[in-house]
Amino acid sequence: MEFSDKICYTREDGVATFRQQLADEEETTPRALCAVKTLIFFLKGSKDPTISQILESLLEMQKLMEGATNSISVTSGCEIFRRFITLVSMDALDAEECRAKMIHRGIVFYKRCSEAQNIISKLALPFIRDEVRILTHSYSRVVYSLISAATQARKRVRVIVTRAEKAPDTGDDTTSVARGEKMVEMLKKIGVPCALILDSAVGYTMDKVDLVLVGAEGVVENGGIINQIGSYQVAVLAKACNKPLYAAVECYKFIRMYPLKQDDLSDLNPSGAGTLEKNNSTLPVSNPWVDYTPPSYISLLFTDLGILTPSAVSDELIKLYS
């Protein structure tokens, strides 16, 4: 999709475009990048004569999109995007000129981010040996592209995928199919031998795999990851069985956040998300969408900035945000 064809003049327009993109490009584009693209369209349409106002409306736009998806990667992507475009030296006094510069830089940012998956595949390839057995949790575009890169490199990979069932009535765009099923479907298409297991069978299966590979919604400051519910228990089991756990993640998912326990994510899990009403729970415990995996359970992070240990993340994160 080129950037010349679309301009958003109002916030409603922006949100509509964002939703449209989510629906159209679900297969190809991560949500964070859809959000960044929307911000660029919005930036194009903005007629504000001052930079401070432009920044403010971008922030409002970001908030709206966060509300629309409840995805932490949208937050981190927009946040880094806004920083990236404002740090350009704007010597021109004319707001129009500055805006053009910001748009240009925004597109540079977008292009760089959309290359991220390929870079990760290239960097992480040596970690995928021939005849390796991989356990992966749920569906992740990065994990998928890494595995497909490995098969293209004539490595025989076998993948076990957890079904990763989400709590119902989340109102999310992908509730219809469990995300793990989608992963299996896609892997089958490229001819990777794969199997689907129940989330509760992870412990039983752990002996039969060589490594665990997961994606992430966000990477937090201490190197831990935020990912779809169930990742934490997979990580704990992997650690218990001495299997390495790798997280493949793009750098625009680095977020300035420092959760210490699962409860700290309650902002990301909308209140009462997916309580299993039909079970008639008598305790007010919800089934959240995401959980937090502490850095001690993660062996390495495969990012487009390089292969990082969790402790190296904070350094990179500070670089990204300054």
Binding site: P49, T50, I51, Q53
Partner: peptide
């Protein structure tokens, strides 16, 4: 002062 929007009151 490098930019002023008098209508909405933003000042760069």
């Amino acid at each position: 002062v490098i930019r002023v929007d008098e209508v909405k009151g933003y000042i760069d």
